[in-house]
Simulated scan of single mutants.
Amino acid sequence: MIGILINEKEKEEIYYLLKREMDEILFDLNDHRIDHVVKRAMKERYNILFNLFKRVASHHECMKYLRVGKRTKSRE
């Protein structure tokens, strides 16, 4: 385990960066042109970012980014 000391300003910056990156991934996951293999990698990255986000965000903010039960199978 690695620990890190950050001040409030740095915490806010990490919060902003994680939130922006997760928003971008969520947007891209809805794009039907992206291959499912790429989407799987994006979901793995999202999970890592979300775990970091949970450390700096409030419970209410985390609930907005929780992806529980969001499985879409749109195979045509």
Rank of each mutant, 00 (worst) to 15 (best):
L66V: 01
Y65E: 01
H36G: 13
I34S: 02
V38A: 13
M22E: 09
N47C: 15
D31G: 01
M42S: 09
V68R: 08
L66W: 06
A57T: 00
I14M: 14
R33F: 09
E44Y: 09
K43F: 12
E21G: 07
M1W: 09
S58H: 06
N51A: 13
I4H: 06
N47H: 14
E76Y: 05
K54M: 12
D23S: 03
V37G: 14
H32S: 11
K11T: 03
A57R: 03
Y65A: 04
D28W: 11
L29R: 00
K73A: 13
E10F: 13
F53V: 08
D31A: 04
V68N: 07
M63W: 00
V56E: 01
E12C: 04
N47K: 15
E24Y: 14
V37Y: 11
K39H: 04
F50L: 05
V56H: 03
N51G: 12
M22N: 09
S58A: 04
E61G: 02
L5D: 12
K43W: 10
L5I: 10
S58E: 01
Y65T: 00
R55T: 14
G69L: 00
I6G: 01
R71H: 13
I14K: 14
L52T: 08
K70T: 08
Y15G: 03
F53D: 10
D28N: 13
K70L: 12
E21Y: 06
G69F: 04
E13Y: 02
K11Q: 02
Y46I: 00
R75V: 08
G3I: 05
R75K: 11
V68D: 04
A41N: 06
K9M: 04
I48M: 15
A57K: 00
M63N: 01
E76N: 00
R67D: 04
A41Y: 08
E8S: 12
L49W: 10
M42P: 07
L26S: 07
I14L: 14
K54E: 13
N47A: 15
I48K: 15
K9I: 06
V68F: 07
G3Y: 10
E21V: 01
K54P: 11
V37T: 05
R71S: 13
M22Y: 10
K43N: 11
E21D: 11
R33E: 05
K43Y: 13
